[in-house]
Each structure stands twice: as C-alpha cells, then as structure tokens.
Design a protein around this nucleic acid. Structure first.
Lengths: 236, 236
DNA sequence: CGGTACGTTGAGTCATATCAACCATAGTGG
DNA sequence: CCACTATGGTTGATATGACTCAACGTACCG
C-alpha cells in the first residue's frame, strides 16, 4: 500500500493553497506537522480506514479522490462525501475520540499525508485560529448534511440524481471534452443518490435521450446544467 | 412573545447541569454571559428564528421543546432535530456568519436565553476548552446527521418510523404512565420520518395492533422498545 | 479462454404517495 | 349559545415510482 515513488509534499505547498485551515499555522507548527506526518499512496479500491476501527490520526489529501461512506443494515454503502486535494478526512473521530463511523476508500489514485492524533489535538487546543477554521469546516459539513437529509427525504430519485450530477460537476469540474473529472460505477452513483443500480442506469439513459448529458462508458458529460438544475428542483 | 412571569435563570443553574459546554467558562465569563443575555419566553407555534434571516445571537434552551427544520422545495418541512433544556441552537449560523438555514419553532412552551453573537465568538476565540467542547458538540451533530442520511436513503418508512419512536423515547423519556414526553402532530411525525401524514397514521395504527405502542390522541406509549428496535433494524 | 465485475434491459411486484371523503374537536364571532 | 370555520385525524381507493429478480451483454484481466 505504501510506496515511495512520489516526492513527499511539503505542507507549505499542499493544503496551504486550497484550504485556509493550515494557513493559520505558525512556522514552528508547520515544521512539526511536516516532521511528524507520514506520506502514503493508495490505488483504487484501497481502504484508508474502516468503520468501527480506532483511528490514531487524520488524513490530508494531496492528490486523488476518496469516497467516504457508511455501511447500512444490509451492507449497502451510503456515500456521505468525497475528499480530494486539500480536504481532510477522519478528523471527526480524532476530535471526539470515537471509533470511525465511516469507511474511506480510494476512487482514484491517491496521495495523502497521515498526521497523528496528538498533533491535531494539540493544534486545536493551542491555536485558536486553527481551531476556529476547523470548526467552520465542521459547520459547513453539518449544513451540507442537513440539506442532504431534506433532499433525500423529500425528492424523487430522478431529482436527486440530477442534483448529484450538478454537485459532481461543481466539485470536480470537467476535462477539456466536458466530461466530469470523476469516474464512478453505476453502483457508486446509486450509493450517493440512495437508490438501486438499475434505477440509476435507467435514469441516466433517460437524461441522455433528453439531451441533458452524454455517456461514454463511465464518463459523463454534462451538456445542460440549467436543465439538470431545473430537473433537480434545487432551491434558490 | 416576551413576557416576564418566570424568573430569569442563572447560567450557573441551567446549562451548567446538563451540558459540559458552559462548565468550561470562568467565573468572569459566566458573569458576562449572565449580564448580556436576554431571557425570552415562547408558546407553541412561536418562531425563534427563520430560515434565510440573519441571526445575531444564539439560544440556550432553559425549558420546553423546539423543532428545528428546513423547508423543502414544495414547502414541506423536514425536521432536522429537536432542542430541549440544555441544548443550544442557532450557534452554527453565528460561527459561520451565514444566514440561518433552518427555522426553529416551539413545540412546547419554551424559555430560552438569547446570547448575542459577539459573546459566542469571543468565547470561541479566547477559551480553548469552550471552543473544544463546542467542536465536540458539532462533531456529534454531524455524526448523527450522517447516520440519518444513511437511514433515510436505505430504510423503509416503517423502519424509519419505528426508529424515530425509539429516538423520541430515548431523548424525551416518558411520563408516569409511559407516554412519551413529547407531543407531536401526525404531520410533524411525518416531517421527521420523511413521509406522508397518511402513511404515519396507517403505520402507527399497525404498530398499535401489533402491540408495540398504545395511542391516546397525540400521546404515544411505547410498550415494546425491543420490538420496535427489531422493526427498525437499528445497527449494533 | 474462462472468469469476474460491471452494465443493460425487461417484467412483475410492492410500498408508498396521492386524492378524496369524512369525522372530531376546539375556537370564533354574530 | 350555536352555527361556522379551521385544524387535525382517519380511512378507502387508486396510481405509480422505484425495487427486485432474472437474464443477458460487454469488457477487461490473468
């Protein structure tokens, strides 16, 4: 799982640019993180941490895409969020000192830095700005979760799928040909939307004949964002 | 909306007992809060704050029950959480300095203290223990929200209703006759579960004939927690 | 070349939403 | 005081979205 063919990124040139969290650190604090962190590489399907296990640090994503999901009663995955460059994961369990309540699995070749729990806890307790930024981050995740609850509870599968496509478009953008910069199986899409794989397939091909999207295997090109937004009944 | 027939509670004797958040405050800090806070009383149906409005403080619940909900596309409420004695609400919007993204409405006669934003922000920025406790609270809410997402996405309405009854039982307890200490309309129940009012009615009467519960108007007696837990497929 | 994982399509079923009618209760105003 | 209205609760009939099951196609991989 761990290789060493990529150079270990310095914090200064990684999270720094994308997240305001690490900008709050002093030079000394950054040095400590740089010194204590553990650089790791994973490929698709690798699991960073698993629901129910104790976690002794958090991950700072330098490259790649990770899905974070909970496992439901019958073993079905429910994808809660994705993490990409600049995001941190597993920090919640470190803060609360609880067992992991999600699993994190690599979607696309990933480089992360693993930073031990005590570093995070120390920063939170001694650097108020860091602590405040982390709280902002948590609050935003909470707000997103609440919106998602409302959506899943009230919208149809069609509306939710349209909305998920919009979100993926906003979060990951597209390549030069207009295809989403994230590649998911139909099952994974279903596990975001909260539906059956077959339903996703049927709806995707419906969206395709209605000219909202184009499909090329797993690659999805969003052709009509406005149309999808309308379909999804996004508020505002 | 504001009356003055109840004595203004002191922080020392209120949140203090139920929440570890305010235990982190120094004598001086408590004095400031006691001085700056505004005691308010509300009756059923009153709205403490509304989605989309700017909020200039947060509420600390001394007594009563409040429902916190989001309004969906077609105007249907989705209840996100309840707040009762010792809970705080609206702090998220204060922290992030965003417009309220939920509405808080009184379910049962409520007494609260309203504490201005700057007090909260100052405490968060200067008292690391307070800040940490608040972060713990946010993290727990986040975890609950994530579990809820998984439930709504994967469980049937019957399972969810059974689970909601269990949660209400755990959170509010029962009176001497075994009836839940919270009284909700069928519509409100539906707005927690994420279903139609009629479905709640049918399922409740099904639970009743199956001897899991007893009904007396709005009052619900949980007779067989084990049975409901089994019905709800709660993990663990 | 067989195996495994993923994708697709069709048919049938079922849970749940929707629509409509009706009852009970309580508060209101003439 | 009573008709009036509003709100909440209940039940039945009907419609349908979405799931399940099953078969089959496709592509990649060792």
């Amino acid at each position: 799982m761990k290789q060493s063919d990529a150079p270990i990124p310095l914090c200064e040139s990684c999270s720094f640019e994308s997240s305001s969290l690490f900008k709050t650190l002093t030079k000394d604090e950054i040095d400590i993180v740089n010194y204590e962190k553990d650089f790791r590489q994973y490929k698709r399907g690798d699991v960073l941490y698993q629901e129910g296990n104790r976690i002794n640090g958090f991950f700072c994503v330098n490259k790649g895409i990770i899905k974070v999901f909970k496992t439901g009663f019958d073993g079905k995955e429910q994808i809660i969020r994705f993490a990409k460059r600049g995001d941190i994961i597993a920090y919640r369990s470190v803060i609360t000192n609880e067992l992991a309540c999600t699993t994190a699995e690599v979607i696309e070749e990933t480089h992360v830095c693993f930073i031990p729990s005590d570093i995070l806890l120390k920063l939170v307790k001694t650097n108020p700005s860091f602590s405040f930024e982390l709280m902002l981050l948590t609050c935003h995740e909470l707000e997103e979760a609440n919106s998602y609850i409302t959506d899943i509870a009230q919208k149809t599968v069609r509306e939710r799928l349209a909305e998920v496509l919009i979100h993926l478009y906003d979060e990951f953008g597209t390549d030069e040909n207009g295809f989403l910069n994230i590649s998911l199986t139909r099952e994974e899409l279903a596990n975001i939307v909260g539906t059956a794989t077959e339903s996703v397939i049927r709806l995707l091909s419906e969206f395709k004949s209605d000219k909202y999207i184009e499909l090329q295997g797993r690659k999805i090109k969003v052709k009509d964002t406005r149309g999808l937004e309308k379909l999804s009944n996004i508020l505002g």
